[in-house]
């Protein structure tokens, strides 16, 4: 069995979701290749070749691949799948966009958000906002799955796989990239951060959200997240949303500030190592999953917390 892993990157750097997905793939086969689709992404190909256990890195470039336009990605991946028995794609928005399209063309029943590989045909995935775990067995000739990277460890570095550059990549026949508005930040990425501080509806305005959360995040070297309510109200960009229908995070420390703990929010953070909840309502459901609960008004709590952190040299 040979497995192809689609790399997750921003054309400049490879994200560790790729290495984690390689580790998942290694549970299926020792023949794991990584496909880097992008534009101006030579450095990414090099980085992928250093992941331990990778057999070969394939790099294909093109403008539409640089934006991961689903139509172009399908055209790039499909012919390669003649050589592979499984395609593993990190569960990012781009992975979720492209993988099912490819799966349908391969007559494969995609397995979404795999969190455990039991054996070559048996996989575990969360359903119902993570309130149940489903173990499925798949007999498709070609298997396609998206992999929830937070559930897997990163593979070691130190590899030296060969990098093969493929001919210029396909164009998307019926889609054109227009523009993008990316959130600029010097903080760590939400899904890669060791610490995440998240704010909810309680923050009340975009100004307050940033005034309260940004300094705390900077002090802790943390990423900033948000509940859906905070994103819907425009306090935080969509990219911050943690939850069933946003991002899934599992940092060492997750601090929820003014977030009630709805099922949909818990789905995105309950696998964090340590959870801290700061909420003025002692009955808020978030306290049922919090290791350390602090029943208090965030308005006084956060300044006090900042002060204590300064005292220990943060």
């Amino acid at each position: 069995m040979a497995v192809l892993v689609l790399a997750d990157h921003d054309n400049a750097t490879l994200r560790d979701t790729t290495s984690k997905t390689v580790n998942a793939a290694r549970a299926l086969s020792s023949d794991v290749d990584v496909l880097v689709l992008g534009q101006g992404c030579d450095a990414v190909g090099e980085a992928a070749s250093e992941i331990a256990g990778v057999r070969k890195v394939l790099v294909q470039q093109g403008d539409d691949l640089g934006k991961m336009i689903a139509e172009a990605v399908e055209l790039a991946v499909l012919p390669l799948m003649a050589n592979y028995d499984a395609l593993l794609v990190p569960s990012t928005t781009s992975g979720k966009d492209c993988a099912p399209r490819i799966a349908a063309k391969l007559e494969a029943n995609q397995i979404t958000d795999v969190i455990e590989i039991v054996d070559g045909s048996t996989f575990v995935r969360p359903i119902y906002a993570g309130n149940a775990l489903e173990t499925v067995s798949c007999s498709d000739a070609k298997k396609v799955m998206t992999v929830r990277a937070t559930a897997f460890k990163a593979a070691d570095g130190g590899g030296s796989a060969a990098v093969e550059n493929l001919a210029a990549g396909p164009k998307a026949p019926k889609t054109r990239f227009v523009s993008e508005q990316m959130v600029k930040s010097d903080r760590p990425e939400l899904q890669a951060a060791k610490i995440v501080v998240s704010g909810g509806r309680a923050l009340g305005s975009a100004e307050e959200f940033h005034k309260v959360l940004d300094p705390l995040a900077d002090k802790l070297g943390a990423a900033v997240g948000a509940s859906r309510a905070a994103v819907d109200a425009g306090y935080a960009p969509n990219d911050y949303q943690v939850g069933q229908t946003g991002k899934v995070v599992a940092p060492d420390l997750y601090i929820a500030i003014g977030i009630s703990g709805a099922i949909q929010h818990l789905a995105g953070m309950k696998d964090s190592k340590i959870i801290v909840a700061i909420n003025k309502d002692g009955d808020a459901p978030i306290f049922q999953v919090a290791d350390y609960g602090w029943v208090t008004d965030y308005k006084t709590a956060i300044p006090a917390l900042m002060e204590e952190l300064t005292k220990i040299g943060k």
Binding site: A132, T135, V136, Q288, A290, G293, V295, E307
Partner: peptide, 21 residues
């Protein structure tokens, strides 16, 4: 896809309340 089984996710225990910062 054959569903082998559906199980409960590992449960988190509520921890302790803290007094102050």
């Amino acid at each position: 896809l054959k569903v082998v089984k559906v199980t409960e996710p590992p449960k988190r225990q509520a921890g302790v309340k803290v007094a102050d910062a």
